[in-house]
């Protein structure tokens, strides 16, 4: 188990280092997030729709699209010079490889989400800081399970034709349960309701995470071959 985690950490570190040296994907994801927020601001009639009513949707649509961008990147980089074959030949288990990739994706998406949240506060003047801790917790809960399935699928589609298009088509149905739950919880949080009122949604999110992280870990070895 210790080796498993150590190897996973190595893979995560490799991915993050690669990303921070080039910064191409991270920069584009951040700019994309900012642009989606701008589009949303101009896509509503400010006199008819109050920001607070639209805020949870804006936040979660932005996060969903940004995550999709992040996931496409995970295995794309490994295609160059057959890096994936090298990774598969390395003496580490497939589970470590999956957890490593998942870890890197989570860090990547978390960075985009934190920046997105700050820009959201700046642009939309929604008092996020009052509920930042429960909001961060719910965002994390909603992201983990979905990114686990996304990492699994991105490993699978990377060698197919139209990989960038295939991933959202396969993944969007899987986004639905966490999206519904996260939006519902966010609405309640912005309305100043206590977290205990949304316990059902939080349980659903936790069950989804446990289920899909386990399933993705079990299925990952079938998706990659030398």
């Amino acid at each position: 188990m210790r080796d498993l985690l150590r190897h996973a950490w190595r893979v995560t570190r490799k991915d993050l280092r690669l990303e921070f040296r080039s910064r191409t994907a991270l920069t584009s994801a951040l700019v994309f997030t900012a642009l989606v927020l701008v589009v949303f601001e101009h896509g509503r009639d400010p006199t008819a729709v109050p920001t607070l009513n639209l805020a949870p949707s804006i936040l979660w649509v932005t996060f969903s699209f940004a995550s999709m961008l992040a996931l496409n990147r995970a295995f794309q980089a490994e295609l160059e010079n057959h890096a994936l074959d090298g990774l598969l030949l390395a003496p580490i288990s497939r589970t470590s490889l999956f957890w490593g990739k998942l870890g890197a994706n989570l860090v990547f998406v978390a960075l985009v989400q934190v920046t997105g949240m700050l820009l959201f506060m700046l642009f939309f003047n929604v008092p996020v800081w009052r509920v930042w801790a429960p909001l961060a917790a719910v965002t994390a809960l909603a992201t983990v399970g979905f990114i686990a399935v996304g990492t699994l699928f991105s490993a699978m589609v990377v060698r197919t034709r139209f990989a960038e298009l295939m991933l959202p088509v396969l993944l969007l149905p899987f986004l639905l349960p966490p999206l519904i739950a996260a939006v519902q919880v966010t609405v309640q949080l912005f309305a100043g309701r206590p977290l205990s009122e949304v316990a059902g949604w939080l349980r659903l999110l936790a069950a989804y995470d446990i289920c899909f992280v386990t399933l993705a870990t079990l299925l990952f070895p079938f998706t990659v071959t030398e």
Binding site: V149, L152, F153, M156, V157, T160, L170, F212, L215, T223
Partner: peptide
């Protein structure tokens, strides 16, 4: 790949 999607 199809089996993985089917199960998920």
């Amino acid at each position: 790949s199809a089996a993985v999607v089917g199960i998920c």
